[in-house]
Simulated scan of single mutants.
Amino acid sequence: MDEFITKAAFSFFIAFGVVLGGALLAGMGSLFLLVPPKEKMLLVAGNLKIWALVAAVGGTIDPIRVIESHVLEGYLSPAIQQIGYIMFAFLGAHMGVELVQWLHNNGG
């Protein structure tokens, strides 16, 4: 159980960091290019959401293969764990987007 929680937490924070870091760096880049950063940060955060999910779960199709192979063999526990990792990664990416939107709405 500890291993699951550790991997799930890493999935969350990796996805969160990809979205937040990408949006913040896009905002810095837009400042250098004399473009208003707020809208660019929102656009980049939304576009990075799916890529953050992919990066957090390993960047390949392997988690889907694990789900498929274990379900077909009748072992549901590994498949449920992989789905859990994907859900935690999605939650992290979504929280990153929400934080960027919050900063956009409350950041003067």
Rank of each mutant, 00 (worst) to 15 (best):
E98L: 13
Q82M: 14
K49I: 11
F13W: 02
L24Q: 08
F32V: 11
P78G: 04
P63Q: 07
A26P: 04
G22C: 12
E73T: 14
V97T: 03
V18T: 14
V66N: 05
V100E: 08
N106W: 12
I80P: 00
V57Q: 02
E3H: 04
L25P: 03
L31G: 08
M87C: 08
W102P: 03
Y75T: 04
E98I: 08
G21L: 07
F16S: 03
V71A: 12
Q82V: 14
G29M: 12
F4L: 10
H104A: 15
V57G: 01
E68C: 08
F16H: 00
G29D: 02
L72V: 14
K49Y: 07
A45F: 13
V35D: 02
I83Y: 00
S69Y: 04
F4T: 13
V100T: 04
Y75L: 12
L53I: 15
S69K: 09
L24R: 10
L43E: 13
F88S: 01
D2H: 06
V44Y: 07
A9M: 14
A26D: 06
H104G: 04
E98G: 05
V18N: 09
V18F: 08
D62V: 15
A15N: 01
D2T: 11
F10S: 09
Y85E: 03
R65K: 11
L103N: 00
L31P: 02
D62C: 06
V66L: 14
V54G: 03
G74F: 01
G21E: 08
E39R: 06
V54Q: 05
V57S: 02
L72I: 14
E98R: 13
Q101D: 09
I50G: 09
H70A: 01
L48M: 13
V71S: 05
S11H: 02
V97A: 05
Q101H: 13
W102N: 08
L43V: 11
L33I: 08
Q101I: 05
T60G: 14
D2F: 15
P36G: 07
A79Q: 04
G27E: 01
S11C: 14
L24A: 11
A8Q: 02
L43Y: 10
F32T: 10
G84R: 07
E98W: 11
P36N: 08
K7R: 13
G29V: 03
G17S: 12
V66P: 00
A8N: 03
I80K: 06
F12W: 08
D2R: 06
G27S: 09
Y75C: 04
G21A: 09
G59E: 10
S11Q: 01
F12Q: 01
W102I: 06
A45I: 11
I14S: 07
L42W: 04
A89Q: 01
H70R: 07
V100H: 04
F4I: 07
G96R: 01
G108V: 06
M41I: 12
A89R: 01
T6A: 09
A15S: 05
I80D: 00
T6K: 12
G21F: 06
A23P: 09
L33Y: 02
M95W: 01
M87S: 09
I5R: 10
E68A: 15
E39K: 04
L33M: 13
Q101R: 13
F4N: 11
L31Y: 07
V35I: 15
I86W: 05
